[in-house]
Each structure stands twice: as structure tokens, then as C-alpha cells.
């Protein structure tokens, strides 16, 4: 095994690129869960975003238009989930699973003419002096605009949930929807907006996968990223800062195992390929067994349907 072929700076830079899809999806899902809704359809919304973004980017030649449409597509798909669970009061677990199956089928259908094409490249935001710095340059100052946007969104969501009036209302809906309803807040409307934000974020995450990370369209290309994003929300105990930490840790594991495979590690491929999933399970176990801390941090109304009687 030749570890010297692994360059630390490019490793960290590719780690950040690999983590961004999961980061975006997990951040959106965290806001949804903060509003008390459990949307298990992240995988379906991500793959829908991936195909929407890819198709529009190829057709228009503009990756940014692709990203915009991916967010729109993810939001529309999540609205389906929202109407079913909020107005028709369907089971959130079953509806989320249905959304994933639906999204996988829909994306394969939409993308069938685009398999094997290349995405138009997204411009790197090279900052004159800073990008040329040794080590720090390639790590921090030579990424694309979406990566910086994802980091800005983490800060924005963290601030908004903690300090803004809207964030407080959203959290109150997630903690106790009956009390929020009694105070006159429109529980269903607020939850719908949160669900759509989550869908848009998952769509952006998917598009980052098909436009920057891979960058091409492959059927079923999310390959479990949406489920890992769901696990990261639990890992993060519903805190934006920790979502960032979690996503980068998992991105790190993915990139590291790919680099180890390339460097000819002695470990069998099956162990390396499975490692992100196995480590996710281990982390979930640790988080859930740590004296129920994770359970206490979960929004109290998470997954419970709200129906204003009367």
C-alpha cells in the first residue's frame, strides 16, 4: 500500500466536495424535523433534484439554472408528501417511503435520455491571492459557489432557528403542535413551508451530486446518501453546527475509503465499500444509547400527525 499517493490538501478539498450533497440534504431535513415532521423521502427528493438539475443544466448550459430547478423540483416533490401527510393525514413513515420509491422511478424515467452525458462545468470561485496560498488555498479558497452557499446556509439556519422569531415559531410547532395551535399559529401551513424547504435543500444536494461531484447522470446515483443524511440529523441531535460536523465526518470516511482503495489497501473492497453504512450504524447506536440524550433532543412532536378537531 502506498499512502504517499494520498495528498492531504487535495484529500480535504475532495472531502468537502463529497460532503456537500449530504450536508445540504441533512440541513433541510433537520429543519423539517424541527417542525415536527419526519420525512423519510430524502433519498427520493435528492435523486429527483439530481435529475432535474442535470437535465436543465445540460439543456441550458448553465449549472446555476440547473441548481435552481433542482431546488424547485425537490420542493414540488416534497409538497406531494406535505399534502398527503398534513391535509390527508397519512402515515408519515409510509408516505416517506412511498416518496423515495416514487422519486427513484420518476428520476430514472426523466433521465433516460441523458445517461452518459457530461454536465457543464461549474466555475470555481478562484480568489486571486488567497487561492494561491500553499495548502490553505486549495482547501479553503478554490471551491465552487454552491459549496460556499451550503456553508452559509448552515450558519443562516443555525442563526435563524435560534434567534429569529420565525425560527422560534417553527420550533414551537415541532415541540408541541397543540400549544402552538392554541396560540394561533397555523401549524399545517408552517409545517408545509418547512417540508418544502427540506425538499429544496435535498434537491440542491442531489444536483450537487450530479453536477459537481460525479458529474454525470447515473440511474440511482444517490445510492443511500439520503438515508445517511437522515442518520446525520440524529447524530447532530438536531443542531445545525453538528450537522456540518456529521456531514464532513461522513464525507471524510467516503473519500478516505476511496483513496485507500485507489492506493491498493490490503482491506477487502467489500469492507471499504460498506464502511460508510457500517459506521453510520455504529454512530446511531452510540448516539441512541448515550443515556437517551439524543431522544431528549428530538422535537417532542416529531412524527405525530396534527389534526385540529372542532
Amino acid at each position: 500500500m502506498d499512502l504517499s499517493s494520498i495528498n492531504a490538501a487535495s484529500l480535504i478539498a475532495s472531502l468537502m466536495v463529497a460532503s456537500t450533497p449530504i450536508l445540504l440534504a441533512a440541513l433541510g431535513e433537520m429543519v423539517v424535523e424541527k417542525a415536527g415532521v419526519l420525512n423519510l423521502g430524502v433519498e427520493g427528493m435528492m435523486i429527483a433534484g439530481a435529475v432535474c438539475g442535470f437535465v436543465i443544466a445540460v439543456e441550458t448550459g448553465s449549472p446555476l439554472a440547473g441548481f435552481a430547478f433542482a431546488a424547485f423540483g425537490g420542493a414540488v416533490l416534497s409538497l406531494l408528501f406535505g399534502v398527503l401527510t398534513q391535509y390527508l393525514l397519512s402515515n408519515q413513515v409510509a408516505t416517506g417511503l412511498g416518496l423515495t420509491l416514487f422519486g427513484l422511478g420518476l428520476s430514472a424515467l426523466l433521465g433516460q435520455g441523458y445517461v452518459g452525458q457530461k454536465a457543464p462545468p461549474i466555475a470555481r470561485l478562484d480568489i486571486p491571492v488567497l487561492s494561491d496560498l500553499p495548502f490553505v488555498g486549495p482547501v479553503l479558497f478554490s471551491h465552487d459557489v454552491m459549496l460556499y452557499l451550503s456553508l452559509a446556509m448552515v450558519a443562516g439556519v443555525a442563526w435563524w432557528l435560534k434567534n429569529a422569531r420565525g425560527g422560534l415559531i417553527l420550533r414551537s410547532v415541532g415541540e408541541n403542535h397543540d400549544a402552538a395551535h392554541a396560540l394561533g399559529y397555523k401549524v399545517v401551513r408552517i409545517r408545509l413551508m418547512a417540508i418544502m424547504f427540506g425538499g429544496a435543500c435535498a434537491g440542491l444536494g442531489g444536483a450537487y451530486l450530479s453536477l459537481v461531484r460525479v458529474p454525470t447522470w447515473v440511474e440511482g446515483m444517490t445510492a443511500g446518501a439520503g438515508w445517511i443524511a437522515l442518520a446525520i440529523v440524529v447524530f447532530a441531535s438536531w443542531k445545525a453546527g453538528r450537522v456540518l460536523l456529521g456531514a464532513y465526518l461522513f464525507g471524510g470516511i467516503t473519500v478516505l475509503q476511496l483513496n485507500l482503495q485507489a492506493a491498493g489497501a490490503k482491506l477487502p473492497v467489500v469492507v471499504l465499500d460498506s464502511s460508510p453504512f457500517v459506521i453510520t450504524i455504529v454512530v446511531l447506536v452510540v448516539m441512541s444509547s448515550a443515556r437517551n440524550r439524543a431522544a431528549l433532543a428530538a422535537p417532542a412532536s416529531l412524527g405525530r400527525p396534527f389534526h385540529a378537531s372542532g
Binding site: 406531494l80 398527503l84 390527508l88 393525514l89 397519512s90 402515515n91 409510509a94 408516505t95 417511503l97 412511498g98 416518496l99 420509491l101 416514487f102 422519486g103 427513484l104 422511478g105 420518476l106 428520476s107 430514472a108 424515467l109 433516460q112 440511474e219
Partner: peptide, 26 residues
């Protein structure tokens, strides 16, 4: 027809079923 169309069909079936359950419970 692409094979994915059937997957989409099956997903749609689940959606319609869950949506119509509202009549059973309400």
C-alpha cells in the same frame, strides 16, 4: 417503455392508497 416507468407506477399506487385512506379514517 423504460423499466423505470413501472417503478413509478408502483410508487404512484402507494401514494394514491395512502391519500385515499383519509376516507377510511375520517
Amino acid at each position: 417503455l423504460p423499466s423505470a416507468a413501472i417503478q413509478l407506477f408502483q410508487g404512484m399506487l402507494l401514494f394514491f392508497l395512502l391519500a385515499m385512506d383519509v376516507f377510511a379514517n375520517f
